[in-house]
């Protein structure tokens, strides 16, 4: 069983409240469409940055809920970040890994390294308070209240079904300008919303 990026982000949207959400890769496109907010900060173009951004926000804003929407290959690129998250142990911190077992999801659907790697085991080994694998939107919705209530950091591995890759009939579009300016624009918008602009 599995779910799509949009289904997972739809559930996260229902429960986010005023959470700060760092995001990247295909989860970024889904959360931006489903739950647009000045409290979203994309790591783009920056593979692997979402977890570090989320940890920094959690340290600076310990009373805020922070959610990280990570890619599986993105997390592998900066896997060491789990060590710091385990050390700091932010209580209001949910780390979602959108595990589609692929990279360039919905574009080229290439394999990724780590076929035998267990994200939940690694997170628990790093000192996360909980870790679970979730395969359906219903199960995610059922898990959310407790994830928000119990002290974290929590790892949630979402089993994601990737969209079809591009073919000759669906040629690759040019990457929009927005993608190269949004990290600056979104950090400015988040600072505005948090009252931390200087």
């Amino acid at each position: 069983m599995s779910m799509t990026n949009f289904q997972a982000c739809g559930v996260i949207h229902q429960f986010r409240g005023d959470a700060l959400i760092t995001n990247t890769m295909s989860a970024m496109f889904a959360i931006s469409a489903v739950s647009p907010s000045p409290l979203n900060l994309a790591s783009v173009p920056l593979m692997g940055g979402a977890s570090g951004l989320g940890l920094g926000l959690a340290i600076a804003q310990p009373n805020r809920q922070v959610m990280v929407l990570d890619g599986d290959s993105s997390l592998l690129m900066e896997l060491g970040t789990l060590a710091q998250i385990g050390d700091v142990a932010p209580a209001n911190f949910i780390h979602f890994v959108f595990n589609n077992s692929l990279q360039f999801s919905g574009v080229a659907n290439l394999d990724r390294p780590g076929r035998n790697l267990d994200f939940c085991a690694v997170a628990l080994g790093a000192g996360y308070a909980s870790a679970q694998k979730i395969e359906t939107p219903e199960a995610l919705a059922a898990a959310m209240p407790e994830l928000l209530e119990q002290n974290g950091p929590h790892m949630v591995e979402l089993i994601i079904r990737a969209p079809e890759k591009f073919t000759h009939e669906t040629p690759q579009p040019e990457i929009p300008e927005l993608q190269f300016t949004r990290m600056g624009a979104e950090s400015a918008a988040m600072m505005d919303a948090l009252g931390t602009t200087r």
């Binding site: 700060l20 692997g48 570090g52 989320g54 940890l55 920094g56 959690a58 600076a60 900066e78 931390t196």
Partner: peptide, 19 residues
């Protein structure tokens, strides 16, 4: 931090959060 990339992104998160 485990690596400098993480030191930079975590510092960015801290800065946006007001540190």
């Amino acid at each position: 931090c485990s690596a400098e990339n993480q030191a930079l992104t975590t510092a960015m998160g801290m800065y946006v959060g007001g540190l």
